[in-house]
């Protein structure tokens, strides 16, 4: 998967979990919880969706590594390959 593929997948799952967020409004460095106001339930739903879609099981201790879109793309790419 390319960076663009991962980015697209992440944004699709994010906007599925939080339908009121527009993909275009998500900045690379927006913090999912502090800026986009995902709560712990939303975040868990996102982690669950990424597991189902990409096969990447993100342990709780590594949640900070997907705290922003930019961080998540780097982290998920490393885990997929």
């Amino acid at each position: 998967m390319t960076d663009a593929d991962i980015r697209k997948a992440f944004l699709e799952e994010l906007t599925q979990v939080a339908p009121d967020i527009e993909p275009d409004d998500v900045g690379d460095d927006d913090h999912l919880q502090d800026d986009l106001e995902l709560d712990s339930m939303d975040f868990l739903n996102l982690v669950t969706a990424l597991h189902q879609r990409l096969g990447v099981d993100i342990p709780e201790s590594e949640y900070p590594k997907i705290a922003t879109l930019a961080l998540a793309v780097v982290y998920l790419k490393g885990r997929i390959s």
């Binding site: 712990s40 339930m41 868990l44 982690v47 597991h51 099981d57 993100i58 709780e60 201790s61």
Partner: peptide, 17 residues
């Protein structure tokens, strides 16, 4: 909670809430 969730896939994890 951390120990429990470490053994679970995301769909069955618990929240402190």
């Amino acid at each position: 909670l951390a120990a429990t969730n470490a053994t679970r896939t995301p769909d069955t994890r618990l929240l402190m809430g």
